[in-house]
């Protein structure tokens, strides 16, 4: 059985409209990946960056999988929330990214989006808060059709990930 180590950190996020940001993350993997050690979900602290600078989370990750096949490679699902000046917590964006399949260190940039409502809802969200959210966040990392979903671009999340593989070459997997 091969093993996969995912080390790194949720470095930060930028380009969002809200001043203070936090991020919820979940690492999903297929049935071929069995968690040996580590935590596959978490939430960062709420960071208020200086103006024009990205938020800094530096949220650590250290996950160890036992691998039975290459199908279902882990992917990370992100939900970014922001806190405005009135203390209201709002959705800032959803995003997802695949953990790189190549051994080494990687700097990833995850583009995020969020559902956009009607003009009335946008006005309501501006004055009262409460932007539309997904009812089922599994849609973010699903490859199924999303033709009914209307979204708008949001900011970016920065990830620093290092990948270590053990015994993959033994099973003919080149990574």
């Amino acid at each position: 059985m091969a093993e996969l180590h995912i080390l790194g950190q949720l470095a930060g996020g930028g380009g969002f409209e809200l001043p203070s940001l936090l991020c919820k993350w979940v690492l999903e993997a297929g049935p071929n990946f069995r968690l040996l050690e580590g935590i596959t979900a978490g939430q960062t602290h709420c960071d208020t960056p200086n103006e024009g600078e990205p938020a800094v989370w530096s949220h650590p990750m250290d996950i160890h999988y036992a691998v039975r096949g290459i199908d279902g490679w882990p992917r990370m699902r992100l939900e970014v929330y922001g806190v405005d000046i009135y203390g209201r917590t709002e959705l800032a964006g959803y995003g997802q990214c695949t953990i790189p399949t190549v051994v080494g260190s990687h700097d990833l940039t995850v583009c995020t989006w969020r559902p956009c409502g009607s003009l009335r809802e946008q006005m309501s969200a501006f004055f009262l808060g409460g932007v539309p959210r997904l009812k089922h966040t599994e849609i973010v990392s699903s490859a199924a059709d999303r033709f009914r979903l209307q979204t708008q671009p949001s900011g970016e999340v920065y990830l620093k990930v290092s990948i270590l593989c053990k015994d993959f070459a033994r099973y003919g997997v080149h990574c």
């Binding site: 989006w113 490859a143 033709f147 209307q150 979204t151 671009p153």
Partner: peptide, 25 residues
């Protein structure tokens, strides 16, 4: 999934960027 449609995204910025984040496995 060999064929699919992403969500409809509005564009933002001067480069008219539309974000999808759609996985194809």
């Amino acid at each position: 999934v060999v064929n699919a449609v992403t969500q409809t995204s509005t564009v933002a910025g001067t480069q008219q960027v539309a974000t999808f984040g759609f996985p194809i496995e």
